[in-house]
Design a protein around this nucleic acid. Structure first.
Length: 325
DNA sequence: AAATTATGCAACCGCAATGCT
DNA sequence: CAGCATTGCGGTTGCATAATT
């Protein structure tokens, strides 16, 4: 491809410059919290499909969103790992900031893993049992991935159980949410419905199912995580189907179970799941409702034709504004 | 104040899909 | 239908600037 006369740039470069920078009504920086929510939710559900995400944010380019996610939002959500975790994850690649390590002998995608963790948090917010209640929905993981996943489960669910099944000693004055943060009783009531017996059994079955032997899916593609997301929604189990009767001993049972599943690893390995994002994530809870109730349903009914769902609304918004089409 | 390191962002690269001749 | 050009996209790089030592 030749250079544009007088510009020392090829057409492709000029096009990119136009699309990402010169185009009218392009916003630069200054992402709002609402935009953060949207980006976060979409990334969790569809992965790094920046063009699709950008279609939902008028005035934002895919490149801008991609940069924003990689440089700020991801760190905001996932960034507070303990140094030991960072060192361990990317010991062979100190420049990777604990995110990328393609040379790892485990050869798994940390991006996929982080998405999975974010996804699980989101699932817990929206419907604490839907995902975990369906063993067939769990991907077969590499043992190392499985370890990390279980660690995440452990950290996510124990506080959740404490909330759903408060022990008599805890009293009502101090309630914790799924992130271990104090919440008032009203919030807790809405956000964390108590589990039914069948749900609890299902959760345990799910946790058993994850350890099934056989070939594992190399969790290296965002599509795998996406598929996981979609099918999990197909198998949602209604939470209060058994009059929401709490199971008093389940919390300790689950804790023991998770402890047993995570035994056999070094203490250093145990730190790998210690992401700091989840405590920050809870403030996004409200903003996630639109997603689960509207977009998610449409997307599923359309067999995940994400473009058809997303592009119809905001794809040409900037052009409309800029050129009054 | 200088050197070093970290960060943010525009631009580049390669690949796949699509359109055109 | 083949060949080429264009477009769209996501991952990565390079550089300017800010922050830190």
């Amino acid at each position: 491809m030749g250079l544009i006369i007088g510009l020392k740039r090829c057409g492709k470069s000029c096009r990119l410059r136009w699309l990402n920078y010169l185009r009218p009504n392009i916003k630069h920086g200054g992402f709002s919290e609402e935009e953060d929510n949207i980006i976060c939710n979409l990334y969790i559900s569809i992965g790094s499909r920046w063009s699709v995400i950008a279609a939902q944010l008028p005035g934002r380019t895919d490149n801008d969103i991609k940069n924003y996610w990689n440089t700020r939002l991801k760190k905001k959500l996932l960034g507070r790992r303990k140094p030991s975790s960072i060192n361990r994850i990317s010991s062979t690649n100190p420049d990777a900031n604990g995110i990328e390590d393609s040379s790892s002998s485990q050869a798994f995608s940390n991006a996929a893993l982080e998405r999975l963790q974010l996804h699980m948090q989101l699932q817990s917010l929206q419907n604490p049992i839907s995902f975990y209640n369906n063993p067939v929905l769990w991907p077969k993981l590499h043992p190392f991935q499985e370890k990390m996943l279980l660690q995440s489960l452990k950290e996510s669910f124990i506080p959740l159980m404490q909330s759903a099944f408060p022990s008599p000693q805890q009293g009502d004055e101090q309630k914790v949410d799924m992130y271990g943060q104090l919440v008032d009783s009203d919030t807790r009531q809405q956000g964390h419905p108590k589990f039914s017996n069948s749900s609890v059994v299902g959760l345990k079955n799910s946790l058993n199912g994850i350890t099934s032997s056989g070939s594992y899916i190399p969790f290296t593609s965002g599509d795998h995580a996406m598929d996981l997301t979609i099918v999990s929604r197909a198998g949602v189990v209604e939470p209060a189907d058994a009059a929401a009767q709490p199971v008093p001993n389940f919390q300790s049972e689950l804790e023991n179970f998770l402890n047993s599943k995570t035994s056999g690893f070094t203490s250093q390995e145990d730190k790998i799941g210690e992401f700091g994002c989840f405590k920050e994530m809870n403030r996004y809870g409200e903003g996630m409702n639109w997603w689960s109730n509207d977009f998610e349903t449409k997307a599923f009914l359309n067999s995940w034709d994400s473009a058809s769902v997303l592009q119809s609304e905001g794809m040409f918004h900037d052009y409309e504004l800029g050129y009054n089409m």
